[in-house]
Design a protein around this nucleic acid. Structure first.
Lengths: 197, 197
DNA sequence: CGTCGAAACGGACCCACGGTCCGGATTGTA
DNA sequence: TACAATCCGGACCGTGGGTCCGTTTCGACG
């Protein structure tokens, strides 16, 4: 089974859809008023094409999200400090969370759309699983810190898209301030010395 | 304008709807497969009645949620320690979060339904605002703790219904363990002494 | 108890949206 | 040029939240 590659009109259309969706989500007020039909129309494509390429709404959102996330993922896995592997655990945890936060600030609508569309919950998505296990692994290297699994979840929960939107959404909290607050919070969680230290 | 009270068939039906909805959400697998029509049917009532009484789906969910929450709210505002006002701040924060967690464990489906239906986000709901400001006020009494606003959000985020469902949902994490983990996490956040001390 | 206006009922109806289907157009190969 | 294989696109469908309005019930008053 030679795994024949797709026809070129297929790849062209796929790209068109991604770009159109990206633009629409960037412009819209709230993610749920970008319909699949809108996206198809904006991409100059039929709905059938759109669903064939991505399966369903969640699939499209995920594809978009993953694409945007790719550079960060690479920076985390093989890049230089502070995101890369050569960073001391505590600093790296802070850097990871800061990166997630910045990503959500820069892609508010998209992140929001994905987290609320996600069939079931955001916790089904594999990219969440990636972030979580990454974070957990780093937390595990910090002496005196227990429950790394739950802690990773709890820290990531502080960067949930709707919370970010709620705080930063109407300019009530500046990007800078929010990053500082998250950093401070993270520090607190990690700072407590070992139980009897 | 004497604010005439509602007719008794109205209050009877309202009650019937609340009870029916409660039962349906308790039984169902996932909240989104309880439709408004289902609820109306189970309550022996027309859809019109249901929407007239509660406005929309979110309104119904909120009413249910508030009703369930009432006893806890009272315990927090005027009850004895550890939930009541006479508790030292740190212990009270832990107690508050534990109460929220237990509530979500006991009302998983309902909390889930509300958080995902919520027009906009869970952060619009007034009961969230109540919890948040309560928690923030208590945090403010803890010396050396800054950013009480964000901290309150972040701590509450660790009790989000979908996270609770994700962890406790399939019996992977026991109730007891989850409470312990949250307590531990809370302790860490609060434990860091004042900056120089 | 009979009357009557206001309030509530209920289910047929509407419509937006995600998702499917299939006849026809495109692609690439021989 | 011929012919599969693949893909296209928009008409179509089912579902579910929300509305509308003719009918019924309530309860105040005589």
């Amino acid at each position: 089974m030679p795994e024949r590659r797709p026809r070129k009109d297929a790849v062209r259309n796929r790209k068109a859809v991604l770009e159109a969706a990206d633009a629409l989500f960037a412009r819209c007020e709230s993610p749920e008023d970008v319909t699949m039909a809108d996206i198809a129309a904006a991409a100059g494509v039929g709905k059938g094409t759109l669903f064939r390429a991505f399966g369903d709404r969640t699939g499209l959102l995920r594809a978009l999200y993953e694409a945007r996330l790719e550079p960060i993922r690479e920076a985390v896995e093989t890049g230089p400090p502070p995101l890369g592997p050569a960073t001391p655990p505590q600093d790296r945890v802070a850097a990871l969370l800061d990166a997630v936060l910045c990503f959500k600030l820069d892609n508010r609508r998209l992140a929001l759309a994905l987290e609320e569309s996600a069939s079931g919950s955001p916790y089904q998505a594999e990219h969440y699983e990636r972030w979580h296990s990454m974070l957990q692994a780093v937390l595990e290297q910090i002496p005196g810190l227990t429950d790394s699994d739950f802690t990773a979840h709890a820290l990531l929960a502080a960067t949930r898209a709707d919370l970010v939107e709620h705080l930063a959404g109407e300019g009530l909290v500046s990007r800078k301030r929010m990053r500082a607050q998250l950093a401070n919070f993270t520090t607190r969680v990690l700072a407590s010395g070992p139980p009897q230290g």
